[in-house]
Amino acid sequence: PPPQQSQPSVPLNQDSLQQRLQALLEGVRNCWTYAIFWQSSYDYAGAAVLGWGDGYYKGEEDKEKAKSKASLSTIAEQQHRKKVLRELNSLISGSTATTDDAVDEEVTDTEWFFLVSMTQSFVNGNGLPGQAFFNSCPVWVTGTDRLANSTCERAKQGRVFGLQTIVCIPLANGVVELGSSEFIIQSSDLVNKVRALFN
């Protein structure tokens, strides 16, 4: 197994994860839209699985641009997103009241991508996070062309939802993924920062 996976993995609780994800995005120079920690575990058949650990959505620097992009999605798509958000809101708050303005606000593409991520998992080296974990090597995909032409479904999906950069950094017990609607060139500083914060 890759050396990083052979280290004992220390489970992080969700508060601690959230603090680290937030500290990461607030502490770096570039405009990252979100950070997700994919937690490693094993399925019933013993296959390595990366599933949702926690995530922090910061949003886009240019909120007006993000909004105008969201308005390019079809009316039906926006209605669908708002309906899902309303249902999730009810589920969390335990109320069916829909007087919340936030629920009726347009759901941007990157917000939707982040939400959909909560339902995803990656088995045996699949997807960008799986690839990074399996090879113990960061994956850095920048540019709409590279995302669109990637063999990974998540990269293609990211491009469709307005991302220009997706980075996956493997750790002993999972993967930190960062995404941005900006074009961000590779930097070892970020990789070091993630490792220092999470390992």
Binding site: Q14, Q18, W52, D54, G55, Y57, G59, K63, V84, L85, E87, L88, N89, L91, I92, D100, D101, A102, E105, E111, F114, L115, M118
Partner: peptide, 26 residues
């Protein structure tokens, strides 16, 4: 109805809360 695994509820609640803040700030 939407089924959300318990472990993801905290993330979701936080996302919705932050979204509320973002919307009220614009």
């Amino acid at each position: 109805a939407v089924a959300v695994p318990q472990a993801r509820k905290a993330s979701l609640a936080r996302f919705l809360e932050k979204r509320k803040e973002r919307v009220s700030n614009t």
